[in-house]
């Protein structure tokens, strides 16, 4: 589904990702872990199409297409979803209008008729129930005045609405209390299927108790230095990142 090969990315001349490789197949959940500042969020932003980064080298193919050639909205319509670490507040744009526009733009792209108002409202109720959001988030402006937890739940709600093939959740667990974390994780788990894939980017192992990954990768200094199964996350939790740093530096020194 997603093949990232030898990807190097920089911003303002500073290289962040250095020869990054990753393969994701349908049905898989990958966790990308690593200390702060190693390029985790950059990776997410580049996959989603943020234009402030320069791709210096390498390629990303997504379902057989060259992802780097696509505008962000095309990537989204083709099934890529980024759950933002810091969801943006947009005063004056209602959640309902935002989601309806997004859905209908996607449907138009796929050659489908737009949803009627009633169909849309029904879908919204369904998805709210699915991800267990019972507040009136949808009546408000996009993320405006939302608490940290509400913003993250709202990301999951949007994901449910848009039904992506590949979801990238960027530090979705940061700033969440345990209850909100469970809501978010349950949402993700309910949306899992053999058809779609998820990349969970996180600093802590905690989230992975609830979203169980098939693969765990450790990102350090712009590339993956260690990959393993879900037990790698536990190892990281007990040993910390220093161990990885030493190992990575050791490898570099040899």
């Amino acid at each position: 589904m997603l093949h990232i090969k030898d990807l190097s990315v920089s911003i303002n001349g500073k290289t962040i990702l250095k020869g990054f490789n990753l393969d994701v197949k349908p049905g898989e959940v990958h966790a990308i872990m690593g200390p702060n500042g190693t390029g985790k969020s950059t990776l997410a932003a580049v996959i989603a199409g943020r234009e402030m980064f320069d791709v210096d080298h390498g390629e990303i193919s997504y379902r057989g297409q060259d992802l780097l050639e696509m505008a962000p909205e095309i990537r989204a319509r083709e099934g890529i979803f980024l759950g933002f670490q810091y969801p943006v507040e947009i005063p004056g744009v209602s959640m309902a209008n935002f989601m309806r526009t997004a859905l209908n733009e996607k449907r138009k792209y796929l050659g489908l008729e737009p949803l009627s108002g009633a169909e849309f409202l029904k879908l919204m109720e369904e998805k709210k129930n699915l991800v267990e959001i019972h507040s009136k988030l949808t009546n408000r402006s996009v993320n405006e005045g939302f608490s940290g937890g509400e913003k993250k739940k709202n990301e999951i709600f949007q994901m449910a609405m848009l039904e992506p093939k590949l979801a990238i959740l960027d530090e979705t667990d940061s700033g969440l209390d345990i209850d909100a974390l469970k809501v978010v994780a349950n949402g993700v788990n309910k949306l899992r299927s053999s058809e779609n894939a998820t990349i969970v980017i996180t600093h802590y192992q905690r989230l992975l108790d609830y979203i169980v990954p098939d693969f765990v990768h450790v990102l350090f200094d712009g590339r993956i230095v260690k990959s393993g199964g879900k037990e790698l996350a536990l190892e990281l939790e007990s040993k910390g990142y220093e161990w990885i740093k030493k190992e990575a530096n050791g490898v570099a020194a040899n």
Binding site: A48, G49, R50, E51, A71, P72, E73, R75, A76, R77, F81, L82, F84, P87, V88, I90, P91, G92, V93, N97, F98, M99, T101, A102, L103, E105, K106, Y109, S141, V142, Q158, L162
Partner: peptide, 20 residues
């Protein structure tokens, strides 16, 4: 970018933000 990352085209995104 937030709007576009949800599949809303540049033109529609601009209009939404102007309306807002």
């Amino acid at each position: 970018f937030y709007l576009r990352s949800r599949g809303i085209g540049e033109h529609a995104a601009r209009q939404l933000l102007m309306l807002a």
